[in-house]
Amino acid sequence: MSSILELMPSVYAGASLALLAVMGSTLVRAILGPTAFDRVMAVNMFGTKTVLLLSLLGFLSGRPDFLDIALVYALVNFLSTIAVLRFFEGRPQVVKQCSTTDVDLDVNHDADPDASGPTTAMEE
């Protein structure tokens, strides 16, 4: 019977390695991401993967009562996403400044802050 339970740590180890790989790819997306929103999405995804990694590490090291930290990570990750959205609220021209590749977004006129609605096309 106990042999089956020995299986679990290796499952945790495999899962955490995979999660590290996913975090790596999210990190690369965060660094390369053309538009600013790509970066926000990458940070959000990075946060959720870190939470999962921590829960796995908690189980791997046999101290599962450290899950408060994982909960705080989720909370803080949500907070920083909302703060970024608040930063972009109603300021489209700021978004262009924050995108790395100076893709020539064909903006015929500079959208004044209050005008909502799509005015530009933004892609690679």
Partner: peptide, 28 residues
Amino acid sequence: IDKLFCIIMLSGIYSLLCASLFVSMDAV
């Protein structure tokens, strides 16, 4: 990178990475 917004996002990731490193080094 010289866009300030991108650096702030990356410094957010930097602290998250630091924090998970601290967890793996038992500094809860």
